[in-house]
Design a protein around this nucleic acid. Structure first.
Lengths: 211, 211
DNA sequence: ACATGAACAAACCAATTGGTTTGACTATTC
DNA sequence: GAATAGTCAAACCAATTGGTTTGTTCATGT
């Protein structure tokens, strides 16, 4: 009989709690979520939950941090120094994959933003830098004629909107497509559509020859 | 001294309550919103609120109905029998205008969808028909070569995603643009960007001449 | 003048909230 | 084998929840 390894067991429980918390927070927000609900979802008692966490707010903060962390990991190793087409296709594919594999995480994030991001603002300083760096790169592409002139911030925002919507508005899309609630969406088809829309939407007016 | 007209006063109060409710529900969802919070936001006591509504759920349902109604009104008189470019520009402009002028309404809707749309599903039967009708029209445009081949459902979904995001993710965009919380976004610029992305993203590969 | 019904405030209700205390049990350490 | 630290269930806590009851005020129709 394998020894469950105490530290491992505790880590497992923590993960279990966090997963349950993310799902509850995604559905009901911070205010609407009860610790009882999280405990139920995690399959433990409320007392046990409160023994392992400090407070509901703390758990919310931690869960949010975790979401941002794994979200960021999804983009490690992406290469900005490519042509816009390859980069955008890669970026969009990763964003969509994340939305489809981690819908609760994206929903929790979106809920936070919708409420004015009271717990998120501190984390956003870094994101803003990244976003502005990306904007600069986009400007370069505009300057060298590889894409048409665009507002680089709004372009990024539009891409976020489309890719994240496959998590946030998933129920609506599934309904329109006559799929049932848990049904998987066609990742390849979605990636193809979004990528095509963006890449073609950015083509310069006249295909000026690139060296 | 003008007579406030009793019926008018009551209608005013009802509107006041509904507006407060929409904002609260948008921020905290159904579960997370307290009737006390709605009352506070409306500037009345909780007792007074409960005198004028039947229950929190009922108020939620009514508010949701109202959102769908005024949203639908926003699209009255739109003409599908035009070329794709004109129609899409018009459609996108209306959607974005609604998101910018009614952010709380869009947020409330999005929150509902995010939770799996438990209160919305009945209303969606009609929307699905509209969506499929629009899909048919898009297919026609594809067939006559005025736009490239696309998945008509995913195209619509992507447009919803982008336009509604200007309400839902408004706080994020404002932060990235260094605007403060209440600041107005540039509607014309946004319309131009989104429309350009979509219209150009749908151009056929070779500009086959249209009669 | 008087009855009627709408509008509302004060007080109250059971249930649920996030969270704590107590005390038992269990595995590890010395 | 005793002390210790970790784990957790039962009971409990004050505060808040959605909602009701009670009684009062006030405009209106007769």
């Amino acid at each position: 009989m394998t020894r469950p390894d105490l530290a491992q067991k505790r880590a497992d429980l923590k993960l279990q709690i966090r997963e349950a918390a993310i799902k509850e927070f995604a559905e009901h927000g911070l205010a609407g979520t009860s610790t009882q609900g999280i405990a139920d979802r995690a399959g433990i008692t409320k007392n046990k939950l409160h023994y392992h966490i400090e407070s509901k707010e703390e758990l919310y903060q931690q869960a949010l941090d975790h979401v941002l962390t794994i979200w960021a990991e999804m983009f490690s190793g992406i290469d900005l120094n490519q042509g816009p087409e390859i980069f955008l296709a890669d970026y969009i594919a990763r964003k969509i994959r994340f939305s489809l594999t981690h819908p609760a995480e994206v929903k929790m994030f979106t809920g936070e933003v919708m409420r004015g991001a009271p717990f998120l603002r501190e984390h956003w300083a870094g994101s803003r830098d990244v976003t502005h760096a990306a904007a600069a790169q986009i400007q370069k592409w505009v300057a060298d004629g590889s894409i048409r002139p665009v507002d680089p911030m709004l372009l990024q925002f539009n891409i976020w909107a489309m890719t994240e919507a496959y998590a946030v508005l998933g129920p609506e899309l599934r309904f329109m497509l006559d799929l049932d609630e848990g049904a998987a969406l066609d990742e390849d088809a979605i990636c193809a559509e979004v990528t095509a829309l963006v890449v073609r939407g950015l083509r310069p007016d006249r295909e000026t020859a690139r060296a």
